[in-house]
């Protein structure tokens, strides 16, 4: 997994690339820390280049959601790949996140 974090106005966006799986636990920490190192009203996680998400990856997204809630900010997932969309449906992520694209 790889990622970049950018800021634009009140929005901070993390663009992820590769696989979000249990083999990537260590990178989750730096991703979360980088993403929330600057305050924002809205945090976006762009999944366009994500190949695969497993339950550990879902857990990472839930941690990001928790951080955003603690910061009283909005969090959204965007550009969800087709295969991940099925996983999100099973995990009922539509009830937990604003999902677009």
């Amino acid at each position: 997994m790889d990622y970049t974090v950018t800021s634009s106005g009140d929005t901070r966006t993390a663009s992820l690339k590769g696989r979000l799986t249990f083999q990537e636990q260590r990178l989750f920490r730096t991703l979360i820390e980088d993403m929330f190192s600057e305050a924002a009203a809205r945090y976006v996680i762009d999944l366009k280049q994500v190949e695969y998400i497993d339950s550990s990856g879902l857990g990472m997204l839930l941690i990001a959601r928790k951080r955003a809630q603690q910061a009283k900010a909005v969090i959204a997932l965007t550009n969800v790949p087709a295969n991940a969309r099925e996983t999100f449906t099973t995990a009922r992520f539509e009830d937990l996140f604003e999902i677009s694209g």
Binding site: F22, Q25, F28, R29, S55, L62, I63, K66
Partner: peptide
């Protein structure tokens, strides 16, 4: 690990 705790995730990675 507890899925909503970042520190648990990190120590889990170390344990693996």
């Amino acid at each position: 690990p507890r899925r909503d705790e970042l520190n648990d995730f990190v120590s889990f990675g170390d344990a693996i």
